[in-house]
Structure formats: structure tokens, C-alpha cells
């Protein structure tokens, strides 16, 4: 059989017909929600980030603005930009919004107190009222070793303290922080159920496949219309759909920890443009040497990144599993 695989290039993921791609997603979204899920509209949590913005725009076109509700779900660690950008987005697409501040709910769960207690066990003089904190992966993805998280605390005088997180504290910080995504999911379902709408999830392909989501949190949704799109493709669609430029230009963050934290620092360990292409190369069995030549990396580096992808996919399989019975 003739090998018809396209040679690897930096344009290999580029969507050439944005109108067709967009229409296909919109048609499928509408059909799935109405016919399969038997719901009449959409509820989308909007954060001012690129993924939720594109999802909202697609939902608006699928169902019409009157059958879509945008829900803002801030809490005390959310950045100020998130609200203004989310409102600008909703205004652009004529969507009604509701703001649900979940800080009290998170206080009730002990989210902040449990997280800060674990940080305090590692950084002894941590003061949650003044200091900012985040967790991040500091290892180079080109090294063939699994990712381990560090805690970074930034003092008011800009002093930075960073320590490797032991298992117990790492797990407690993540478990406590996950109250945020799970509380948001609960509120989204409240609105979806009262309106007889579906919850439209916002994860992109990387989040789904590398497990960068919280099980029953942002992973808890009825349908994920951009779950098959690479991040650079999400940006292409954002431009095409007319998502506000402030959202497109914003660096993707987790908007979860008190210190500023990009998604690259937190999880992906490389820029989206690079990750998209190498992931595509890995997923489609392109030799590391061919990918390396295009990406300016040596074969060993690409092989290490491929191994990292294999590990991330395997490690996060649990997140994508349905209950076993």
C-alpha cells in the first residue's frame, strides 16, 4: 500500500477551511444536544479564557443567543481580567450571563484552609494573607523523567521560595484546589437543570488527552465540542468566530492559584505551538528524527517528549474512565 502520509511541517495542523470546520462543530453540537441529550439549549462556564470563549461562540451559533447562558464563576483567587473579558465576550455574542461567586462555598468546603495548611507544612513561614503561591513543574520536558511538582511561594518583597512537593502535601494541595472546579460544575448543572439545558464542556484536545482537567470538575459536562481541537486550532477558530482580541491575546493561565501561573508552567512544560505539533507527530507516528528536523530539536529530545506524552496519557487514564461496574 502506498504511503500517503503528508510530510511533517509546521503547517500540518492549520485548518484551511474554517467556515466548514466551524459549521461541522455547530451542526454536531446542536444535533447531539437536542437529539441525543434531549435538552433545549446550553449552559457554558465562561472564564475569559480562549477555550470557554470559543465554546460559547459555537454554542451561540448552534442554539441562538436566547438559548445559551454564560455563567461566570469567580472566587477570591480569580484574576480581575477574567470577569471583564467574560462579560465582553457575552456582550459580543448577545448572551445573557449570571455571576455566581463560589468563594463562600469553597470556604465551606475548607478549600483554602486545607490548601494553605499543606503549603505551610513545606514552606514554614508561609503567610496566605500576604504571600502568593502556585505549584509548577520545573523539569525540562526534554529530559526523560516523569514530571514532579514544586511549590513556589512569592513573598510581598518579591522573595521567591521554591521546594519540591512531597507526595502527601502535593496530593492535599491538588485535592483541596479541585474543590474549585467541582463547585463550578455543581453550579453549572444547577442552571442547566433549571433551564432544561445541557452543560457544554470547554476542554480542548490537550486537556482531554493529557488529563489536564478535574474529574467531575471541568471534566464534568454533557458534551465537549472542542475536545478534538489542538490549541492552535482553537485560536484559529477564535479569530474566525470573532472572539474579542483581548481574550485571544491573553496568555492562558490556570486562574486557580494566588500567584500568576501559566498553563505552560503548571502542566504542559512547553509552548502550545510546539506542543501541538509534537503531539500531532507522536499521535500520527511520525519518526522523532523527521519531527526534530522541523522543530529544531534533536532526535533524542523529541523521543523524550514522545515518552512524556505516553506517560501523561497513561497516568491520567483514570481521569477519563467511567465508573466501573
Amino acid at each position: 500500500m502506498k504511503n500517503i502520509k503528508e510530510p511533517f511541517s509546521k503547517n500540518i495542523l492549520k485548518i484551511n477551511d474554517l467556515e466548514q470546520t466551524s459549521n461541522n462543530i455547530i451542526t454536531k453540537l446542536k444535533a447531539d444536544v437536542i437529539k441525543k441529550l434531549q435538552r433545549h439549549g446550553a449552559v457554558v462556564g465562561i472564564s475569559g479564557g480562549i477555550d470557554s470563549s470559543v465554546t460559547l461562540a459555537l454554542a451561540a451559533k448552534a442554539f441562538g443567543p436566547n438559548k445559551v447562558l454564560g455563567v461566570l464563576l469567580p472566587e477570591k483567587d480569580s484574576s480581575d481580567d477574567s470577569r471583564s473579558l467574560a462579560l465582553e465576550l457575552a456582550d459580543k455574542f448577545g448572551i445573557d450571563t449570571v455571576t455566581e461567586n463560589i468563594t463562600s462555598a469553597l470556604d465551606g468546603f475548607g478549600c483554602y484552609q486545607r490548601r494553605d495548611e499543606a503549603i505551610g507544612r513545606i514552606v514554614k513561614d508561609f503567610n496566605p494573607k500576604e504571600d502568593k503561591a502556585k505549584i509548577e513543574i520545573k523539569q525540562d520536558i526534554k529530559q526523560n523523567i516523569p514530571a514532579i511538582f514544586s511549590i513556589t511561594v512569592i513573598k510581598p518583597n518579591e522573595e521567591v521560595v521554591s521546594k519540591l512537593l512531597p507526595a502527601k502535601e502535593y496530593l492535599q494541595i491538588v485535592a483541596a484546589t479541585n474543590f474549585k472546579q467541582r463547585s463550578r460544575m455543581t453550579m453549572l448543572y444547577y442552571h442547566a437543570e433549571r433551564l432544561h439545558h445541557a452543560v457544554i464542556g470547554t476542554p480542548n484536545k490537550h486537556e482531554v488527552e493529557q488529563g489536564f482537567f478535574v474529574k467531575y470538575g471541568d471534566g464534568g459536562a454533557d458534551i465537549m465540542p472542542i475536545g478534538h481541537l489542538y490549541k492552535t486550532q482553537v485560536y484559529q477558530l477564535a479569530e474566525y468566530l470573532g472572539v474579542p482580541q483581548g481574550i485571544i491575546d491573553r496568555t492562558p493561565t490556570t486562574d486557580t492559584y494566588t500567584a500568576e501561573q501559566t498553563q505552560e508552567d503548571f502542566f504542559y512544560q512547553m509552548p502550545f505551538e510546539t506542543m501541538d505539533l509534537i503531539w500531532y507527530g507522536w499521535e500520527n507516528n511520525y519518526p522523532a528524527e523527521e519531527v526534530g528536523q522541523i522543530m529544531g530539536l534533536n532526535t533524542n529530545e523529541v523521543e523524550s517528549i514522545y515518552k512524556n506524552f505516553v506517560r501523561k496519557r497513561k497516568t491520567t487514564e483514570y481521569l477519563r474512565m467511567k465508573p466501573i461496574f
Binding site: N144, I145, P146, A147, I148, L164, L165, P166, A167, Y170, K307, R311, K314, T315
Partner: peptide, 15 residues
């Protein structure tokens, strides 16, 4: 790691 004996949590517990 290549043999899949330890993932990131496995490495963390080893540490």
C-alpha cells in the same frame, strides 16, 4: 520509566 514501572506519582512515592 521507559518500562512503565513508575509514573510521576510513582516517582514521588519513591522519593
Amino acid at each position: 520509566f521507559d518500562a512503565g514501572l513508575l509514573d510521576s506519582m510513582g516517582l514521588l512515592f519513591l522519593i
